[in-house]
Design a protein around this nucleic acid. Structure first.
Lengths: 205, 205, 205, 205
DNA sequence: GATGAATGAGGATTCATTCAT
DNA sequence: TATGAATGAATCCTCATTCAT
């Protein structure tokens, strides 16, 4: 059975929901809108999902998974030195930007709409951010262990701060799609903050 | 009569809305909930506001204004050198943290719920973030002009990245109130990123 | 006390109600609209009237009274012959038309809006029409007694039919104010129907 | 399946609305009343109609259509002489009376309640009366052309006057259902006015 | 008397969800 | 399995009415 060829009902419903939730917002989007987008009866949605928030939950899961794929593509222990890590950050940054630029709905869903549906969805969201922070923290710890990152940084907290910078770029795009043009400037700013700081390098004191 | 003492109806409705919207979310909160919180008739709300989203708009305005007060308390051109700026970042960070810790609802409203109500509210939100970015950019440009910040940083973009770090702290608290305990660690991480970068200072190479 | 000079609050409220009810319809008009029209507080209305339908009742009463004045101006027994009666019908017709033309709201209130408010108002309306029919019937009976109107006409029913013709002219104006231009044509048609019939007068067969 | 036997949801809603609007008046009738009358959920009404006034509009349309059927049953050019026309007026009068007697709600809806809902409904009402007047005018012109009605009568205006007489009979019934007893007296009065006038036929002067 | 702030009953409308076909 | 007609809980909002000032 060509299960790979056709996306499957469930997935196409999620695709439609992804689009519609992003376009109208979760609250304003009706189940009938999702079904209308697909040209199927709205009762059908309930054969694949318990209820509306279950759809939202699945959409959020998928969206977070897509982000996780990008974040987790490089293994945290692969970098041996500062330059490699710097290159890796550029790489991940670019991939993330590509993801959010290709699908501006993604950012809107993940960073705004679906996080406000429900306490449970909020929890889902929180957990994903925690996972992402763990990833970043692993990079930082790897750098500390290998000696090219400061030993006195708090990996857990710094990881969240770093992720905040990165995801703020995505939120930016979600708020204003023209912000995709900032891609390289944004990544450069992040890299500069991470590896150099903003201070004017003094004369070799 | 101590007219200063009593907040006035309009303000007390905003207070209640602030609390209720943060507790239940905008969509789930009914006008009756706001009124119930105050022990007034729900019709009364409509003497002070056009409709529900008008309440939300005013709540958001007030919340953003409160943040603006903290952000704008220090004038951007007051810092003469790196150490002063570093101290100022600490100061602002602490004040912001104090604000969001004192009222965890604030972060939830500003960074999550009220930004998803409406296209107009989203716009309101966007504009406020732009104003905040302008502030931070002014700090950065001041530092560049005085020579203690790198001349090659993109003030406009970097300002947004920096704000992203800072507000992510607030979002953190909004997502999980126990995160207030991270206050100093968070600010230290931000300051380290801004002024030092994460790289292990090498031996005088 | 110059009670005649100033119209009195109660009357000015009725004036305003007359105008507003006719403009917006009874259901759509709010007590606040009446008060706003006069520049008085809406609570004040309740010092002069029990409630909204009490205002409507008084407006209807006054309107019906105004019509009654015109209808009852000529005494039914004053006409001695057919020509006098015909002249009288012209006179009454003209006066009624003048009344409804001078105040198009009148027709709308009496023949449409205020008759649908309430069972009690409907009753008020019915009674007034009965009184008007009694008047017309008295004319007809006077004509029968004096021998210039057919003895075999049913005065009670015919009176209502005649009034129907007449008031339909007012309803016409209420529905479409430009219909005032039809005044003479209308009265002529009514007079023709009453006194001549529509049949082509045959040769003295 | 006897699809003709069951009226169809939309129609049964209109039936219920017809009854309920006539019983309570448009303003006082709630959508829930209509639904309750049918034993269906009130949300169902909104599957067939946009909103309450849309229901009213359809009810009015149907009611006016029912009257039009009766009015238009006889072709205006079918009468060759005065006696035939007189007979036809009797016939139409009887049929109209039968219609309004069979369904007293009809008159109340058409001549009172539904004409006050809305400017658009008022317009609908006005147009229908215009159409009815056109019909009657066609009868009159036919009579003029064939020479049995007075050449000097204004067909357009007289048609409205005549219709006023006729519909006043229906309004009468709507105001007071016992008025159905007046049927023949009413029609006789109308016919007398139309064909004979009220004047006592003089001796061959 | 006059005012208008406050009230809450009332009703239109929406839409997630169910279930017979 | 798919459908969409039916449902009614839920909620916004209006506005007649009250009453303290």
């Amino acid at each position: 059975m060509a299960r790979t060829a056709e996306p499957g009902r469930r997935d196409s419903i999620l695709d439609a929901a992804h689009a519609v939730f992003a376009r109208k917002g979760y609250a304003a989007a009706g189940i009938a809108d999702l079904a209308g987008e697909l040209g199927i009866g709205h009762g059908t949605v309930y054969r694949y999902f318990e209820n509306k928030r279950d759809v939202a939950s699945a959409v959020l899961d998928r969206a977070l998974g897509r982000i996780a794929e990008v974040v987790a593509a490089d293994p945290p222990d692969a970098t041996a030195g500062l330059d490699e890590y710097r290159a890796q950050v550029w790489r991940i940054g670019r991939r993330l930007y590509a993801l959010f630029a290709a699908d501006p709905a993604l950012g809107r869903l993940v960073f705004f709409d679906l996080a406000t549906v429900d306490e449970r969805l909020r929890e889902q969201h929180r957990e994903a951010l925690d996972r992402f922070a763990d990833y970043t923290a692993a990079y930082l710890r790897n750098g500390q262990e290998r000696g090219f990152l400061r030993g006195d940084l708090d990996a857990r907290v710094t990881a969240r701060v770093v992720n905040g910078m990165v995801f703020e770029g995505a939120a930016q795009v979600a708020r204003d799609p023209t912000a995709v043009a900032l891609r390289d400037a944004w990544i450069r700013a992040v890299v500069m903050l991470m590896f150099d700081g903003l201070a004017q390098p003094g004369p070799p004191s």
